[in-house]
């Protein structure tokens, strides 16, 4: 009698189905549409328009610049905060961390409207600053959490060993704490940079001005406002996806090169 072999991998089948249905199939649609012209035939025109039209490149550059500023801002604010929070003498119960991470559980649109009313209240005019600050506010917890995790998991005996070997507090930070928090920095940067480079809602809500029109807005408008430009929208989305993949790949290379173990995201 043939025995029914039941492998553990069979349990993965539903997830595989989900993956195919909601990731692979839409990606294929996207790719097909990206190469489909207005007449329904095969074309490279959608991609060509990205590189020939000055507008698309400029908008993308702006998106990357704002994403970069946001990431840098989050890191600059988040690193010292994480450093303070990871000190068990100051943060005795982890309640402080909770307070910082709490906004993550509130819908980001709500948070965006909240910061918008703050800008209105102080009558802020600089559109760039508004969008960047709103993004830093929205994405800050995504930077803080991986940084905090990496720092809290740092073996205390390592810092003790460093000071035992003659390092003062600053040298201990420079030679031990900082290098060992790099995995946290990398995953924090990715967690913030990747969503901000493709976001469109924040800039639309807090600014809505042409000078803060982002690549995400452009793609959104192809699909939404100017109905029917699915081919262009798909091509631009595909380009963005590729760029994000490249960023990820580079970040992974960087993390592996350091061989730093836990704290990494991917």
């Amino acid at each position: 009698m043939p025995r029914l072999k039941f492998r553990r991998s069979y349990f993965a089948a539903p997830y595989l189905l989900l993956n195919v249905l909601f990731i692979i199939v839409p990606l294929v649609f996207l790719l097909v549409m990206a190469f489909t012209g207005e007449d329904g035939g095969f074309t490279f025109a959608n991609f060509a328009s990205f590189f020939t039209g000055a507008n698309a490149l400029r908008v993308m550059g702006r998106s990357f610049l704002i994403a970069f500023l946001t990431t840098a801002g989050c890191l600059l604010v988040g690193y010292p905060v994480a450093l303070i929070l990871s000190n068990s003498k100051i943060n005795t119960s982890a309640v402080l961390v909770l307070l910082f991470v709490l906004p993550m559980w509130i819908n980001s649109l709500l948070r965006t409207y909240a910061i918008k009313s703050v800008f209105d209240a102080v009558n802020m005019q600089n559109e760039y600053a508004k969008v960047t600050i709103a993004m830093i506010y929205d994405f800050f917890p995504f930077m803080l959490l991986p940084l905090y995790t990496a720092m809290v998991n740092l073996d205390k005996s390592l810092t003790e060993a460093a000071s035992d070997l003659g390092a003062g507090a600053f040298t201990v930070f420079l030679r031990v704490r900082l290098p060992l928090s790099v995995p946290g920095i990398i995953s924090g940067v990715l967690m913030v940079f990747m969503p901000t480079v493709s976001t469109f809602a924040i800039s639309e809500i807090v600014s809505g001005k042409p000078e803060t029109y982002l690549f995400g807005n452009l793609i959104n408008d192809f699909f939404g406002k100017n109905e029917g430009l699915y081919g262009l929208g798909s091509a631009y989305a595909f380009i963005l996806l590729m760029l994000i993949c490249l960023t990820l790949f580079a970040a992974n290379k960087l993390a592996k090169g350091g061989e730093l173990g836990r704290g990494g995201l991917l």
């Binding site: 073996d155 005996s157 390592l158 003790e160 060993a161 290098p179 060992l180 730093l260």
Partner: peptide, 8 residues
């Protein structure tokens, strides 16, 4: 006790 060597 647990060596505390710098992993990096």
């Amino acid at each position: 006790q647990k060596y505390a060597l710098f992993p990096h």
